[in-house]
Design a protein around this nucleic acid. Structure first.
Lengths: 208, 208
DNA sequence: CGTAGCATGTAAACAGTTACATGATTGT
DNA sequence: ACAATCATGTAACTGTTTACATGCTACG
């Protein structure tokens, strides 16, 4: 009964894009997902076509083939009234937070057997990735702000969404910087077992 | 070919826990995943048993059955040398950032058809969820800091991981607060299609 | 002119991961 | 009946790979 962590967002994202106007699968992939919503959601082309088909058989959208000159036919999908209803319901629904799933935090959690230098390397790499994503995000937000085809309200909300993604990247970078500072200040203890109890060496592995 | 966004982290998380000492599937579920690593990764019980089985057939761990009095037998898994090698390799590897997948940002992106009040309601609910998680996180971090069975180094790294999760929650809350402030300050335009006026700069978006 | 390569558009097969539900066993 | 422990079944969603058809463009 209760809505799980998330799920089915792709369907709603597609309905959202088709709420603006009718589009083909190709448009959705190359325009909407590869550009507009890149910062929030990614979708494979195959995934998009499968989902379109599912939505069509659920009568949430209809399709019609349009001839083009010089190009293959386009199959254009249009949202139906019940499609819009479904989208609208999703849009208003407060979903639960997704369950945590962060491989990098796990890596840090277990990092005790790495040397300070190895840890520092991982943190720096990670920082660079977030920095790069931050820059992409900045460009995407600027690009989006140029889109005059949407209402002022929609435009502000889109910028708010970019701001949310941006805030997350910045927070990650700040946290990484704090850790890097702490390590270079020598605040990470060595790997000695602090005292009495605790585990024996697990088995004879290659001496570090 | 091996640059997947992430994937296979569960295997490594299990190997990580078994690096500390041998455990049963039940221990992993009720102790490691439901308590220790709750903030970073969740795992279904079924998933854990299946993954253990896979790791066992890959010779990354071994199992042995231990009789207990008054309880069903325990099947205790122990990491092998090649299991530790695999874990160690993962631990040192800099993975790519996972591809973005944030249903709430999508919801905001498409929220133009909602009223200010509806949007405010969603944002406040969301804020409350993050706040609750923050509090959980605080307790888990305190709890973890009491664990004397790990080295000082491991303990600090675990706290660092909790700090990362905490930073993300705080950033989300700050972003939500900025949005809530902006809306209550009347900075969210109505849904008219007027594109004549210039967009004002958006909240939360710091100058680069 | 012919053909090779490339962009456009659609589709299906298959495998990996996760969630959720149910069942089986043991011993108090 | 109940708790601890392990196991199986199934469905959903995603990602990767492969395939196929159409028509444009460049080049020998």
């Amino acid at each position: 009964m209760q809505l799980r962590g998330q799920g089915l967002s792709l369907e709603h994202a597609i309905l959202g894009f088709l709420s603006e106007h009718a589009r083909s699968g190709y448009d959705l992939k190359t325009r909407c997902f590869d550009i507009d919503a890149k910062a929030f959601w990614t979708a494979d082309q195959a995934q998009i076509y499968r989902t379109l088909e599912r939505l069509r058989t659920s009568k949430l959208l209809t399709s019609s083939v349009r001839r083009q000159t010089g190009k293959p036919d386009r199959k254009v999908y249009e949202i139906t009234a019940s499609g819009h209803e479904s989208f609208s319901e999703w849009e208003r629904r407060a979903a639960a937070l997704p369950s945590p799933r962060d491989a990098f935090l796990l890596q840090v959690y277990f990092a005790a057997e790495l040397s300070d230098d190895e840890i520092t390397g991982l943190l720096r790499d990670r920082r660079a990735s977030h920095q790069a994503r931050l820059e992409e995000l900045r460009l995407e937000a600027v690009e989006a702000s140029r889109d005059r085809s949407v209402s002022a309200r929609a435009s502000v909300l889109r910028q708010a969404a970019y701001a949310g993604a941006t805030a997350a990247e910045r927070a990650a970078i700040d946290w990484l910087d704090d850790m890097l500072d702490a390590i270079s200040a020598g605040l990470l203890p060595g790997s000695g077992m602090s005292d009495a109890d605790g585990q024996r060496p697990l088995f004879g592995l290659a001496p570090a």
